[in-house]
Design a protein around this nucleic acid. Structure first.
Lengths: 165, 165
DNA sequence: CTATTAGTTCGGAATTATCCGAACCAATCG
DNA sequence: CGATTGGTTCGGATAATTCCGAACTAATAG
């Protein structure tokens, strides 16, 4: 790989790394491992690659790599007569991301409903002017439902596209 | 407030607290303050309320309360002849949440485009079978665009509704 | 002026997260 | 068999986060 491409790759590993630290709250090295694997692509990344390129210890790489596999973010392929594992991103990452969002929204909806129940109860003993206003929750739940619906459509489109390939 | 309602409130403060810790990555006490304010409603929560009910020090409450105001998550009203502040949630929280999502998605889109540029460059020097596949990014960007659009519609609906009131 | 209330600021203690090294295991090579 | 490769596990060092207490300010009350 060319000198300048290598540099770009390193820069992008750090930038993407910070992004994943926040989005998936991974530890710094964990996030960089994921980034490195994404930016290496089909040919795959080995354990030793990660240790030397990310300047991290074997134990750290081992732990995070296993964690990323547990999270279903990466997987690996093997070559006959080769003991190494070649790590690549799980190719349904996109669908996974959508499912994660849907789950988060579902969880939020449940929470809002639980809070509404509490507020309805509490309102029974409150004066008119201090009563809880439930419109907020109703609106938010409506928003979550619509958002879920529209993302569900996207998910189906993507699944359809994937099965066609 | 009734005994059992109080208990429910305490339970919900903890539950909601954990939710906000993750969603908005607030510190434990910060997340509980936000939850407590939400579950107290219109009448508002005072500094002293928070200190005694959440069993936290004045300094901790002060810091987190200011932080929540900086984040535009809470605001306060005052009463004539009363030096206390009565904290309540910022009522455009819903629109804010939507804007946050839209910003996150825009940021993700920029990242995907930057990665695509890198991969296109890298592909020039790669064999056919190890070339990066760009479909993933194209698909994801398409997904982000559609998601952004559909959420933008919801935002407009909500803003419209709010101005009507 | 003194006391009280409402809150802020700052130094550091306690907790938690992250990472490393050393020792280890299991498979293959010679 | 011993040596090398490809990793895992565990104890502890380091760094970052979170919280607290003490000392402080600023406004009002008596």
């Amino acid at each position: 790989m060319q000198e300048n491409l290598m540099k770009t790759k390193c820069r992008l590993v750090e930038k993407l790394g910070i992004h994943f630290e926040n989005k998936d709250n991974l530890a710094p090295v964990g996030a960089r491992i994921l980034s490195y694997i994404i930016l290496t692509g089909k040919q795959g990344t080995t354990f030793e690659d990660l240790v030397s390129n990310l300047c991290a210890s074997k134990s750290t790489v081992s732990t995070h790599l296993n964690h990323l596999q547990d999270l279903n973010k990466v997987e690996y392929y093997t070559k006959t007569g080769d003991r190494k594992k070649y790590f690549i991103i799980n190719n349904d990452t996109m669908v996974q991301g959508i499912l994660e969002l849907m789950n988060q929204w579902e969880e939020q909806k449940q929470l809002h409903m639980e809070i509404m129940d509490f507020k309805i109860d509490a309102n029974k003993a409150l004066d008119e002017d201090t009563k809880f206003n439930l419109d907020f929750h109703k609106g938010y739940i409506e928003f979550l439902d619509e958002a879920t619906q529209s993302i569900s459509k996207l998910r189906n489109k993507i699944i359809e596209k994937n099965t066609k390939l």
